[in-house]
Design a protein around this nucleic acid. Sequence first.
DNA 1: AGGTTCCCTGTTAGCGTTAACATCGATTGA
DNA 2: TCAATCGATGTTAACGCTAACAGGGAACCT
Lengths: 348, 348
Amino acid sequence: MPSRGVAEAQARPPVMADVARLAGVSHQTVSRVLNGFSWVSEPTRQRVLAAVDHLGYRRNMAARALASNRSNVIGVVVVNPNLFGPSGALLAIEQAARKAGYWVSVASLPKVDADHMAASVDHFRDQGVDGTVVIAPNQWALDASAKALGGCPAVMLTANPGGDHSFPTVDVDHELGARLAVQHLASLGHRDIAHFAGPSIEFHAQRRERGWRAALEELDLEPGPLLRGSWEAHSGYELARRLCEREAPLPTAVFVANDQAAIGALRGFAAAGLRVPEDISVVGFDDVPGVGQLRPPLSTVRQDLTELGGKAFDLLLGVIGGKEAGEHVALAPRLVVRESSGAAPTAG
Amino acid sequence: MPSRGVAEAQARPPVMADVARLAGVSHQTVSRVLNGFSWVSEPTRQRVLAAVDHLGYRRNMAARALASNRSNVIGVVVVNPNLFGPSGALLAIEQAARKAGYWVSVASLPKVDADHMAASVDHFRDQGVDGTVVIAPNQWALDASAKALGGCPAVMLTANPGGDHSFPTVDVDHELGARLAVQHLASLGHRDIAHFAGPSIEFHAQRRERGWRAALEELDLEPGPLLRGSWEAHSGYELARRLCEREAPLPTAVFVANDQAAIGALRGFAAAGLRVPEDISVVGFDDVPGVGQLRPPLSTVRQDLTELGGKAFDLLLGVIGGKEAGEHVALAPRLVVRESSGAAPTAG
DNA sequence: AGGTTCCCTGTTAGCGTTAACATCGATTGA
DNA sequence: TCAATCGATGTTAACGCTAACAGGGAACCT
């Protein structure tokens, strides 16, 4: 156990020179040992390590950053910090980064406007981060951050690989997730599958909608009605009510853009006297905690946020290391079948 | 608009000396202007600012930290990063900190053991943060972090003000929240109020349980049955089933330790053929997004995490500024009445 | 034996700020 | 009128580290 007490007893924390003196070597040798550099004899290394331990020495990061021009800090800017996806991704990035010896500095965007985005990115540049990952849920955030980033090492956690920037991008394949959901519904005999879409400016909403449409087309099915709302639960409720009030015959299944809205939809259908899944099937997206205990337990699409965050960090390391950019990595989500999706009701 | 282009065109970013040269002053004067120090004549200040702008100059944080021994970075260690409370508090701290010109560095604890806690705190000390806030949900985390922190400036976001540490502490008053819930239920005519408690090592679980008990005592009511589970939804389900399978007569209301478990409880009661709130009332805790759209919409207790985070940061600033420690700040939560709590059924 | 190589270690010189002290002209007070 | 004061600025020295180069032995080759 390091005798930290020694350090605390002194007025000033020990510096590298103190360690060097105690170990009877030069401070440079201490530096070499601490950085794991080659060509230090084993006895010397041991003496240095013992001195470090005895003094409770810790390197001064600021001095290190100044001299080496590397901070070992990465920045993460997250746009919708309260949503399940972004906040989970943030945590996952942090885990991956810390495992690799990096620190993460966070900036969450309260308001989504270009000024705040630029300020956040500038923030990180000021701080001298080695790289930045931007969680960009829409074109606006992507453009604003790309512009503010300039040529700084960065990766975008975003669904849109295109654009005029040259950063690597990662995301879960939300379009695939949507197809999985629709195919699942179709395999249950559903022919009329509606979609409650998210905000149309959001990439994820776009992809999920596109996946829904594409899967239907592949299956030679007519797209059911599409109602657009927000990511929030009450939106799902309202959409469900609105769907039930229409003149047209009801679809037998709905693919809802996220679990929150699906929660609301479940309530909306119940309020309209429909049973899920007997009268209408519902599939959500995200696998938010607790949806497995809804009435009925919600079938949904799960993204592996840990994998996502890890991949984002790996890519960033690559960029920092000078690798060429432009890559897009798409991760596969997974369907989680529970009880809210069932066999299509036989036509009455 | 700052002509950042100039900076980017150069091979090396401009330093203070470049600004000084352009403005025809010494680098120290530049430093004075940038730090808002007194006694710089207005014309000089303007010239410096113009030069800064023209060059797109930005101070090097590492050098600044090295020379001034202050980093303007605070660290936050968060123990249950996936839970609603901790992650919300983290975000709130970040907002408050950034508004005050601080950066926040995050360490989330994957495993809850003393080594990881010590490593995280050490991490921050290495990095030279000006202060640390620890989100400590239980005694274990509190002790481990207090020990690792030593005399470093820090505040604990925790429900337990006691202990042998001398850090200021903040938290929402969960005991009060629980009382609010129980009083509400009692005012609806309930005499037999059960509690689904959280993990007994967790401070919040302890406080909510204590509040439930205290309120009952004040009201001269016998405590209903207490069943203990986890914070998760399935736990609420199991507890509800177990409650219904007992020989004893059912309570008419349950105060559930958190919303997740309440979601499960709602399902459990439905599965047992009980209607909420006609047969049994349910009140949760947290006001997690979406619970207003459950069937029925959940009555719950809401904590103001923004206020909590802000207060934590304020306290930390105080400690950094050398203020004496030991304070405990308790914030008031608020009851949110929805439809899962109703009048007690008239005795049958 | 003398050069060459290879390990290992030390010396020196920054990195870009802020802190502390020095300077110097203009103002003030006696 | 001369010292004392003050306001504005410059000069120098850290801050604690890493990078780059400079040795100096021992081992290896010829």
